[in-house]
Design a protein around this nucleic acid. Sequence first.
DNA 1: GGTAATGATTGGTT
DNA 2: AACCAATCATTACC
Length: 425
Amino acid sequence: MDDQARIMQSIGGVSLAGHSVQGGMALPPPHGHDGTDGDGRKQDIGDILHQIMTITDQSLDEAQAKKHGLNCHRMKPALFSVLCEIKEKTGLSIRGAQEEDPPDPQLMRLDNMLLAEGVAGPEKGGGSAAAAAAAAASGGAADNSIEHSDYRAKLTQIRQIYHTELEKYEQACNEFTTHVMNLLREQSRTRPISPKEIERMVGIIHRKFSSIQMQLKQSTCEAVMILRSRFLDARRKRRNFSKQATEILNEYFYSHLSNPYPSEEAKEELAKKCSITVSQVSNWFGNKRIRYKKNIGKFQEEANLYAAKTAVNAAHAAAAAVQNSQANSPTTPNSGSSGSFNLPNSGDMFLSMQSLNGDSYQGAQVDTLRHVISQTAGYNDALGGNTMYSPHGLNANGGWQDATTPSSVISPTEGPGSVHSDTSN
DNA sequence: GGTAATGATTGGTT
DNA sequence: AACCAATCATTACC
């Protein structure tokens, strides 16, 4: 308001609103007139300004016609320079206010999230990567493929809506920008508008549109979050592992009872065999260890079952090995087997098992064979919730010790190293 | 419907 | 990071 008042003042008391022309004239005479024709010039300026000020009230056609007239008016260059001067004075206050604002952190966050979720960014890579990560986290390869594809479909839907809307906004923004730029360029003929100012205007328009875009991004993020939380909730719905998978895991567990901690490689192997994830294998072993330790009696039957199972497998493998070795080197049937659990002679095997500690045997069959040994000894007490029973591999603190004791059922009265009479079997 | 079994999660420890 | 222990939440079975 004050600026406007000053402008009025500086153009020499020409009242634009009231159309009256009073007082002195500040404009330099464009054509070297000496001032005798002052009233006429005043009239001219007043007329021009009036036309400019009322141009917005006119129809487009009318304005267009008048625009041309104004452009050709003899007083135009003078008025233009005055406007430049005024602008120079008032422009200072604008310059300070307009700064290059830093990227909005919230917008950056939204952008990053959309990128990470695969909504923004490249079509295939982002989307499937996020979906795959979610699937990996959910832990199902085949089991939740339905949920997985459902998730992906919904994500694609969100993605499509997002891109369509974004495109619309961008198009509208570009159209509007072009329109404003043309308008300003056109106006720059009658009033001083620098390219920088046009740029600034474009910036303002873009900021306005980007704030609209931010709303779109925000609601898209919300949609993705809702979808994701639903998907994760679905993930929590556990499904029991297949019987086959449980068997594989149990076989490993009971055949490594003295140290049931599969290495990373072993976990991966098991995960592959069972069609589950490595973390599921870890979970399973964590649960199994704790539950086994808590109630060994309850698991004894299962332990014996798997021990026998694995032992049978081991025996078959051993028999096959014997046959093989005999066929290959009939003169040295026991060559190279000494000290290994994979002895061809069962009697030797049992004797060796009893005399050596578990760490000497790295094979999967060790604990299993020990089970068989104890089983054949006819020890059945463990099934009756034997609290005196000290589990093999478990130390006094409840942790698994380093396989220094046999992992099968041992009579409380017998030491770990004691030789059962079952070796006859 | 009640309960045991079981996979997943969480908080703490090493 | 791996593990333990407690717990939650769901599934399977009676």
